[in-house]
Design a protein around this nucleic acid. Structure first.
Lengths: 195, 195
DNA sequence: TATATACTGAAATGGTCGTTTCACAACCAC
DNA sequence: GTGGTTGTGAAACGACCATTTCAGTATATA
């Protein structure tokens, strides 16, 4: 009976995600979102109920289509002993390849952590669980890297590596070369930890 | 001849700085600034010419009264061999002591890096030079910590420690306990590097 | 005390924000 | 084809934004 929606939801969310990623939640306006999605605001509100609803969809999309595919280098079974190295090499490559003013620099979730997530419980818990997921994946890969390491050692190393990841992503927004160097520092450090 | 200004500029800037620190540049409104400073907008505009002018003054104040005093643990002569450890212990203590919703969590400059600094050359270069200053101070302290380390080793370690600092500050906005743990990870790592 | 100067308060400006409204166009089932 | 339903476009909503204006007030010199 009804008329059918004539846009691809996944593509609309993806374009909105890239804009939020680049500019943050508050600095992204509805006219901006209309422009990048090609949709009128009434369609956006009809599909996502609010700007925040679209942002939440974008965050979900970011986790599914950006974060988790990257983490699979760390978690794919059987886990290679060089999984962590490969992860940081691919991160360094990705950071180096990104043009200076391209969207998709840094991390959508970390950016929100530095911004409104500190005052928004829902977003804060999304960021927390992202942090835990990254940390768990790194711990998993570190265990493959050095099966004899104690769990205290693994936790220590995971915190170090997670921090290098966080720092590289954040720095990539202002100083790409330093961000790449930080990602490579993780690779060097993994060499030192090689059993 | 003229009537004299009847507010303390340093105190006004300090209060504005704490608000920008907590909420970011864009999310802080002029009415907000009027409230925390106790000044009418005409006085603010008269003294700082624009919201951005006040923000720039706040950034300058942040560097002078927050960042550099903290860095003096690392740079004071004669440099103690445990300067870096002391820095991270004091960072961990400061993060642990801060109430959950207090202003002053995280770092004003890193927050801006995750936000508008990526699109604002002036702010970007402020963040870059902050990063360099922190990195240089850490390298200095690391040299005192291990005088025989090569400069490549020092650079590697400085990048690691800088990243732990960046990560701890950013995380402190969403997960204080994990932020404290990250700062303590730096202390542990320095133990491992003890010659 | 007179006066020039600078600070201050209140109100207004023009613009943009997120959201809502409503008429109309498009479609599927019948 | 027709009816009923839903997506879409354009316009309007009130709220808030950063900034400006301007009249009035306080003061330090002369």
């Amino acid at each position: 009976m009804p008329r059918t929606q004539d846009f691809d939801t996944a593509e609309v969310v993806g374009r909105a995600r890239d804009l939020f990623w680049d500019k943050g939640f508050e600095a992204t306006s509805i006219p901006d979102l209309e422009r990048v999605t090609g949709l009128n605001r009434s369609s956006l509100y009809n599909a996502f109920t609010s700007k925040r609803g679209l942002f939440d969809a974008a965050v979900h999309d970011y986790l599914d289509r950006v974060v988790r595919p990257r983490l699979r280098i760390l978690t794919d079974e059987p886990t290679r002993s060089d999984a962590a190295s490969r992860y940081y090499r691919s991160l360094a490559d990705a950071l180096a390849a990104l043009p200076d003013d391209a969207p998709g620099r840094g991390c959508l979730l970390l950016n929100s952590a530095a911004g409104f997530a500190a005052h928004d419980d829902a977003q804060r818990s999304v960021v927390e669980s992202y942090q835990r997921e990254l940390s768990a994946a790194l711990t998993h890969a570190l265990r493959a890297h050095d099966p004899d390491a104690s769990s205290a050692t693994l936790q220590h190393r995971a915190r170090l590596l997670t921090s290098l990841s966080v720092s590289a992503l954040l720095l990539s927004r202002v100083d790409r070369d330093e961000a790449v160097a930080v990602a490579k520092t993780a690779v060097e450090q993994l060499e030192e930890w090689r059993p």
